[in-house]
């Protein structure tokens, strides 16, 4: 049984962080707690996640506000999209 959250970064966020996917274990209680934790680990990433147009998706659905996170969920940070 997973106890962490899987974090995915897309587009320029991947270049800022130097990684594309990692697991944060144990799972933070909320999206904002996850953001704070990531910013503590990497200040530049924290700033990039707060950048204009960056959206968060929880389990592949855009998550407005500050949703609760559960163990085993997937959080993706999506910078402005380029289109096809």
């Amino acid at each position: 049984m997973a106890t962490g959250v899987r974090v995915l970064l897309f587009g320029p966020l991947r270049d800022v962080a130097g990684w594309r996917e990692r697991t944060i274990d144990p799972a933070p209680a909320t999206l904002s707690a996850l953001r704070r934790l990531l910013a503590d680990l990497d200040q530049a990433l924290g700033a990039a996640l707060d950048g204009p147009g960056v959206k968060a998706a929880v389990d592949k659905a855009i998550a407005p506000g500050d949703p609760a996170l559960r163990p085993g969920c997937e959080v993706a940070f999506l910078p402005p999209m380029s289109g096809g």
Binding site: G11, L78, G83, G84
Partner: peptide
């Protein structure tokens, strides 16, 4: 719509 709304990131 694909060119501007589809979720892709392009380098």
């Amino acid at each position: 719509y694909l060119k501007s709304r589809a979720p892709f990131w392009k380098k």
